[in-house]
């Protein structure tokens, strides 16, 4: 059982929940938890959310996007208050993870709130004092929907970030708004000869497209790890 210790609104529709979980065993960046809500009539709804922060004792962070027709996310982002309990199971998933002891370069490609588990990797890198070179290609609809704005703006040695705006770009941004392309992945990523580990997270169509681009650019499919959001994200 977890309890809400605090929250931060990242955008008008995305909130980061800070939870205290007694007996939390620790986790790796990229892992997720299953959150289960039980209504008074016994009806249950369960959703998976990525852990947004690196391991830090019994405190975890989840970043949740409110989906208007969702069953779970409107509750978690609007009703769920400090001190309230919620059932959290995890951490789970040992495949889509970055281990701070790893030495190969890393490419992160995020679509929208798909940034969350990748942000956990960036934060874990900083926490571990790792000098592994990271690149992040972050595809987002508009500047207003960028998550963790302040934190991403702070330069970090060894971390390059490039943005792809799909609907609306900031004034003077050289790239016109549009869907992510091979050119974006190519210029914002690593040459395949560097043998980077690539983590791609976002909606299913986005992940599918980017994973295909990476393989077409010559990346070994076994080094392209993906996490798709399903249709029941709400």
């Amino acid at each position: 059982m977890a309890r809400l210790a605090g929250y931060r609104d990242e955008t008008p529709t995305v909130r980061t929940l800070v939870l205290d979980v007694e007996g939390w065993p620790g986790h790796l960046p990229g892992q997720h938890v299953d959150v289960r809500l039980t209504a008074e009539d016994g009806y249950r709804a369960q959703r998976s959310y990525s852990l947004a922060g690196p391991d830090s004792g019994e405190r975890i962070e989840l970043t949740v996007e409110r989906l208007p027709d969702g069953e779970v996310s409107p509750y978690l982002t609007e009703v769920f208050s400090v001190g309230d309990p919620v059932e959290v199971r995890g951490p789970v998933g040992g495949w889509f993870v970055w281990r701070p002891a790893a030495t190969e370069p890393v490419l992160l490609v995020a679509g929208g709130v798909g940034l969350v588990p990748l942000m956990a990797m960036l934060r874990a890198r900083r926490q571990a004092g790792s000098r592994v070179p990271f690149r992040l290609v972050y595809s987002v609809r508009s500047p207003a929907e960028v998550l963790y704005t302040g934190e991403l703006r702070q330069p970090q040695p060894g971390v390059d970030i490039s943005y792809v705006y799909t609907r609306e770009a900031p004034e003077g941004f050289p790239r016109p708004p549009g869907r992510i392309s091979v050119a974006d992945v190519n210029s914002g990523g690593w040459p395949p000869e560097f043998e980077p580990t690539c983590f791609v997270c976002g909606p299913t169509g986005f992940v599918e497209a980017v994973a295909d681009m990476l393989v077409a650019l010559g990346h070994d499919p076994s080094r392209v790890k993906t996490e798709r959001f399903g249709p029941t994200g709400g």
């Binding site: 938890v33 299953d34 199971r89 789970v92 998933g93 495949w95 889509f96 169509g205 599918e208 399903g230």
Partner: peptide
């Protein structure tokens, strides 16, 4: 076909209820 699925990662929780190890790897 292309929008209605997730990765096997999503099975980590439900399979974790049955097995002691992470079967998704």
């Amino acid at each position: 076909d292309s929008e209605m699925y997730e990765d096997g990662n999503a099975l980590a929780g439900p399979l974790g209820e049955i097995f002691t190890m992470d079967v998704t790897v």
